[in-house]
Design a protein around this nucleic acid. Structure first.
Lengths: 241, 241
DNA sequence: CGAGCCGTTGAGGGGATTCAAGCTCAGTGG
DNA sequence: CCACTGAGCTTGAATCCCCTCAACGGCTCG
């Protein structure tokens, strides 16, 4: 069954400055010097999406890569059985849609989980860099490798164990993705199911249970606060059976 | 519980020739011209492993990448819950251990599924290429992207559905990985469980069922023949419920 | 205020796990 | 030669977890 994702025409604006970008150190162009950075800067737009807005469609051939400046983006795809699954989450600093650099169609739908701010980087920009391309190539490979490792970990951690355990794992991951102190993004129950491979009812039961157990507290629509120590306790407890 | 994987000291030999490599077109150095290729060739060794031999350990910092020339390699890692999971399979032409290029420790254990032949490429070789590095960088990125897409697909396809459905999916994947006409690698039942997130008993029941249904036929230890049409029939049938 | 979405909870059934026994087969040593 | 052993596979029976189907409540929005 298809989810009603709806696209919002992105409000685009020149990025304030790449030089003073808060994610510069960890960002794609972190390796470039100030001078090159200024040259690059004029061609990078800011894209703002509200929650549940579509960034791009699987199958579309885009000419842009994106870096998540703030917020959370999910990557979804449809299985051969016909149901939708979330295969990865991209938080601050993460590169989204690198396949565009290779002139390949996007492999997933990219959808905003929360309100999101992204840098939109044209593929052509990277080709134009000339001699400065080299440190960038290395930065790109590092991103790709990080994404690959993330996918593998996702696979291993979310792929086995009881539904209770998997929900615990997911919550910890969501804590890691949220800025320190901020409430986490709490997916809709159906979406938890799309991440962990369970039904929305089961997801609901597990979240309710964790609420009773004092590990999670709702903090608004799609938001929650986690008690990290409590969560760790419960994870240890569940791991020992 | 740990699997008894045992290491075999790889029999190393100079590769016959990169120029005439059967996987050259799809291989890492496919983009290089004959001349450069000959220069490169002297530094690439052939590694032969027998089934269940360890190629490298997760956490080890290696200085080599490998290309699968023949056979099948599995990538495993230990989850936080402490059980071992198989996160990806690498068949002919696939690059294994690219993180070594970034001087990062390997993220998974790499283990031979069948007898395997690999090209062992030193990290330093890529640094030494100089001006020829550029097409190579692109080839590398393409590999990384392919691996990422594979991991995401793995995630989506093996992460939901009944155990019967997931075993059907796995068998189709194994057919794709085997050379045309060759029998497929049939994992031990416990390993099917490590791939699909189920117990060995359940895996056994599903394989037995598919044998009764005429989709699979054993062809030796760890090997089997698949009837592709029958398999497709059963998949369609299972998809319609 | 009714409609629809989202979340929650219950009851029941079914599929997967657990626990267990038995089988085949290869390797080993008496 | 053959009993013995252990690993891998299969199958059965009982249990339990998760799914299915269903009803209901809170909430937002037209």
């Amino acid at each position: 069954m298809l989810m009603p994702t709806f696209a919002i025409r992105p409000a685009q604006a020149r990025a304030p400055s790449c030089r003073s970008c808060p994610v510069r150190a960890s960002a794609l162009f972190g390796a470039l010097d100030d001078e090159t950075l200024d040259r690059v800067h004029g061609r990078i737009d800011t894209v703002r999406l509200q929650a549940d807005a579509l960034l791009y469609d699987a199958g579309a051939t885009g000419s842009h890569v994106y870096t998540v400046r703030s917020g959370l983006v999910r990557l979804e795809r449809i299985t051969e059985a016909g149901d939708r699954r979330i295969v990865r989450l991209a938080g601050r600093g993460i590169l989204v849609g690198p396949e565009a650099l290779l002139r390949q169609p996007y492999g997933d739908d990219a959808v905003a989980c929360t309100d999101v701010e992204l840098c939109r980087i044209p593929r052509a920009l990277l080709d134009d860099l000339g001699p400065d391309r080299e440190p960038l190539a290395r930065a790109l490979m590092t991103r790709w490798q990080a994404a690959l490792d993330d996918a593998a970990r996702w696979n291993a951690e979310f792929g086995s164990g009881s539904s209770y355990w998997r929900v615990l794992q997911l919550l910890r991951h969501l804590v890691d993705l949220a800025p320190d102190g901020d409430p986490i993004w709490l997916p809709r129950r159906e979406q938890i199911g799309m991440i962990l491979g369970m039904t929305e009812e089961t997801a609901s039961r597990m979240i309710s249970r964790l609420r009773r157990e004092g590990a999670i507290e709702f903090a608004g629509p799609r938001e929650a606060r986690i008690d990290p120590e409590r969560l760790e306790d419960l994870r240890r407890q569940a791991a020992d059976e």
